[in-house]
Structure formats: structure tokens, C-alpha cells
Computed example of a mutant assay.
Amino acid sequence: MRGSVMGTAVTLAAGTLLTAAMTTTAAASPPTATTTPVKAAQTHTVLVDCFFHRNVRPEDFILACGDGNSRLVDLHWTQWGPDGAQAFGLNMVNDCKPYCAAGTFHAYPVVIRLSGQKTWQRHPSFERFANISLTYTNARPDTFKQVMTYPLWD
């Protein structure tokens, strides 16, 4: 009888190990043709920055790539999708007085809108936003309109 109990214990242990191995293998294996993909040709809409990095809902974003004298900070995204994106935050703009290196940055509250979804030439599996619009909700820099729209990098 002792051998029977021992044999049963070994069989149960072996079954448990086999089940664990099969579960681990199934979880680690890539999807097969029998699984249902989320979306076969799924695209991701991104915001391309000065360094051609793709961003989704960034907390900050440089607008003036050459000198950094205009950037968006403290961004809070309320929408992000293929039809556009929207956030609110601050546009930090250097007044460049008396010249840019000695200038002072000023914060202007803005509503940011991204639009114009296009295929990203560098990474065709991604869609990118082509335009950014800033709407100043209060004060704005001297030479700026209340709504400023700029093309974005490809």
C-alpha cells in the first residue's frame, strides 16, 4: 500500500509540473492564426518631436527646435486619437530682451490641438499629427495672434 501512495504522489506531482509547463509555454508563445488579433493593421497616431522621436501624450514639447525659446510644459491631455488630440498647459516663451541668451521666459496658458493625421514617412506603420494649434486663453506674447498654428515635423 505504501508503494501505491508513493506512486500516486509521483503521478500527481508529474501532472502538476506538466500542466505548469504547458501553461507557461502557451502564455509565452506568440499569437497564431487561430487567435483573434486586436486589429491587424493597427496604426498609432504620434506626435513627432525635434529629434524625430514618437510621443504619445507628452508632458512637455519643444516648439522652437533651433533655440528652445518656445516650449510647451505641464501638458494635461483631454483627448488623444486618430481624429486629433487636445491638451491644456503652458507655453514658455523667451522674450529675447535684450537678446535671447539674456532673455526671460514667460508662461502663457494655452489650449493645444493636434490635427492632420498623416503617415509618418520615417516609420510608415505610424500615423503622425501634421499640425499644432495653440489658443492663448489669457495674455500672449507681443507679436502672437490669439490662435497660432504651426506645421509639425515629419
Rank of each mutant, 00 (worst) to 15 (best):
G3Q: 15
V5F: 01
V5R: 05
G7S: 06
T8H: 02
T8Y: 06
V10E: 00
A14E: 01
A14T: 11
T16M: 10
T19Y: 07
T19C: 05
M22R: 12
T23A: 12
T23Q: 10
T25F: 15
A27C: 11
A27K: 08
A28H: 15
P30K: 10
T36C: 05
V38M: 13
K39R: 11
A41C: 07
T43N: 06
T43Y: 08
H44Q: 08
T45C: 04
T45W: 13
L47C: 01
L47H: 00
V48T: 02
V48S: 01
F51A: 08
F51I: 00
F52M: 05
R54W: 12
N55G: 05
D60R: 14
I62F: 06
L63I: 04
L63T: 02
A64E: 14
A64M: 10
C65G: 04
G66T: 13
N69G: 07
S70W: 12
V73N: 02
D74F: 09
Q79T: 15
G81N: 05
G81Y: 03
D83A: 15
D83Q: 15
A85F: 11
F88P: 04
F88K: 09
G89M: 06
L90V: 09
M92T: 08
M92P: 04
V93L: 01
C96R: 08
C96T: 13
K97Q: 09
Y99A: 12
C100R: 01
A101R: 08
A101K: 11
A102D: 15
T104I: 12
H106E: 03
A107I: 11
A107F: 14
Y108A: 01
V110N: 01
I112H: 05
G116T: 03
K118A: 04
T119E: 02
W120C: 00
W120S: 02
Q121F: 11
R122S: 07
H123D: 08
S125F: 10
S125C: 12
S125L: 13
E127V: 10
E127N: 14
F129K: 08
A130W: 06
A130H: 10
N131S: 07
I132M: 03
I132G: 00
S133F: 01
S133W: 03
S133N: 00
A139F: 12
R140D: 09
R140N: 10
R140L: 11
P141D: 00
D142C: 00
K145P: 01
Q146C: 12
M148Q: 09
Y150E: 14
Y150Q: 09
L152Q: 07
W153S: 04
W153E: 08
D154N: 09
